[in-house]
Amino acid sequence: MAHRAVTTSMPMPRATDVVRLRVNGDLYEVGVPAHYTLLEALRYELLLTGSKQGCDKGDCGACTVIIDGRATLSCLTPVHEAEERDVVTVEGLASADGPHPLQDEFDLKGAAQCGFCTPGILCSAAALLARTPDPSRDEIREALAGNLCRCTGYTKIFEAVEGAAARLRVE
């Protein structure tokens, strides 16, 4: 029997505000409820579902995006706070020519298992490499300290970031 379970007792809120967002280089003008977070706007209005809704309260890092070059938790960012700023999500890392070296290295090194934490980790790592092209293992650990992975342990993730850093320095 086709039956869709109702998972929330709260009605979908109505859009009341129009916000202008620049996400992955594209300009959007989108209607949102005034109390939306950036994560909700990305996922439910722009349909960019790469950023994950994990703990939804700033513990896990799965919603990490890059705002003005800095790794930021989109689940704690009121959507208006992202206006007039430059947002990059995991969807914006790859180019038309192929995946970002970080994405390629995560694949080659087996740094993702279930994959839920991966978009946030890729964003934290991309923000790190933009500022620190040749990070030490400790600097990588520190930059990824706010991204929890419950599958892999972190060794392969650190190796993948080191691999991507080496490739980016050559390019």
């Binding site: 700033g58 890092g61 790794a71 938790l73 704690l76 934290s124 520190e142 706010g146």
Partner: peptide
């Protein structure tokens, strides 16, 4: 304090 993303905010 907390982790890097939180300190950025």
């Amino acid at each position: 304090v907390a982790g890097p993303q939180l300190r950025n905010m």
